[in-house]
């Protein structure tokens, strides 16, 4: 792999006034043209990582470790101004909550125009045509009407597609998509994923794709990182991890997927127990209280990351290379 676009090394993040870190010792890399899927339970720190990748954490947050974009440390060497420029030009996100990411009192068309900053010196008609084309690509009906509307006049899925269009118009080197298709129906989702796959090839950038939907990971991602309670528990290629999960959490998570259950049931499988509270983390393995395969050692000692091959690892005592 050539130099990674994004490289995280031992990143820990603590929010101001939070009792403990929301993300702990996470390391991974995303190369040019690669798409990394991040999955994990709700509250495991996925959006926190996404915010950190944009240099957008609340004031007073504490970040340790290094987070490099094209070799430059986002938290060490860059000024606020550099970061703002980076966010405007090289890194774009599709936020988990599209409504709060858009300006509620600005028409959609104008907001989209701001995103295509590369083209700001082109004539207005050309910029407008580009926006219209992009809105058609994300399969919005009446793109010209949509441009005149305000965010609250759009449905959840339409908003989500507007934010996808915005991110694609920005032509970023790094695209961070936080659950971009949760509000889309199956057919629209399939189409949008197709568009994103195409965009990936033309943009040559790297993509980080946060999702809960394993079928989306399968369709779009090359690699996958599984988070649990703020820790990276398993990583590898999509085929390796989904086909042959090594960490007990990954296994349990996949078993919960209703899409993998043949017969309709009223009682869906879950992972028993709850995620430990931030300030009440077990001393040993973080998954130990809920782990079906836990052994005595797990309670006493936190497992290290075991390498299982090139860029493939899992953090569990039972995993042996």
């Amino acid at each position: 792999m050539s130099a990674p676009v994004l490289a995280l090394d031992n990143v820990s993040i603590r929010y101001p006034s939070a009792p403990a870190a929301a993300v702990r010792n996470v390391s991974f890399e995303v190369g040019t043209g690669e798409t990394l899927g991040i999955v994990g339970e709700s509250g495991s720190g996925k959006s926190t990582l996404a915010a950190a990748m944009m240099g957008l954490l609340p004031r007073g947050s504490c970040v340790t470790g290094s987070l490099r974009f094209e070799g430059r440390d986002l938290f060490g060497q860059m000024t606020e101004r550099d970061l703002r420029q980076l966010r405007g030009r090289d890194i774009a996100t599709i936020a988990q909550d599209p409504f709060t990411a858009l300006n509620p009192v600005m028409k959609i068309g104008r907001q989209l125009d701001i995103f295509q900053h590369w083209y700001h010196d082109r004539p207005r008609a050309e910029r407008k045509a580009r926006i219209l084309e992009m809105l058609e690509q994300v399969r919005l009906s009446d793109p010209d009407v949509r441009m005149q509307q305000y965010p609250h006049q759009l449905s959840g899925g339409i908003l989500q597609r507007v934010s996808i269009a915005a991110a694609l118009l920005a032509e970023p080197k790094l695209l961070i998509a936080d659950e971009p298709t949760t509000a889309l129906d199956a057919t629209t989702e399939a189409q949008i994923l197709g568009i994103m796959a195409e965009a990936k090839e033309t943009l040559r950038g790297a993509t980080v794709f946060i999702t809960h939907d394993m079928s989306v990971v399968e369709r779009l991602c090359d690699r996958i990182a599984v988070l649990y309670a703020g820790e990276l528990v398993e990583t590898g290629t999509v085929a390796e991890v989904l086909g042959n999960p090594q960490h007990p959490y990954t296994k349990a998570l996949l078993e919960c997927d209703p899409a993998r259950i043949e017969e309709p049931t009223s009682e869906l499988p879950t992972i028993g127990g709850t995620v430990p509270a931030l300030d009440d983390r077990p001393a040993g393995c973080i998954f130990e209280p809920r782990c079906p395969s836990a052994v005595a050692r797990c309670r006493a000692e936190a497992p290290l990351r075991h390498d299982l091959g090139p860029r493939r690892s899992a953090a569990c005592h039972l995993v042996t290379p």
């Binding site: 998570l253 919960c256 209703p258 499988p269």
Partner: peptide, 16 residues
């Protein structure tokens, strides 16, 4: 869309 944005296990718990 009560399950949008939930992980599979929590989704299962919620639906149950």
């Amino acid at each position: 869309e009560p399950t949008a944005g939930l992980d599979l296990s929590v989704q299962g718990e919620l639906l149950n």
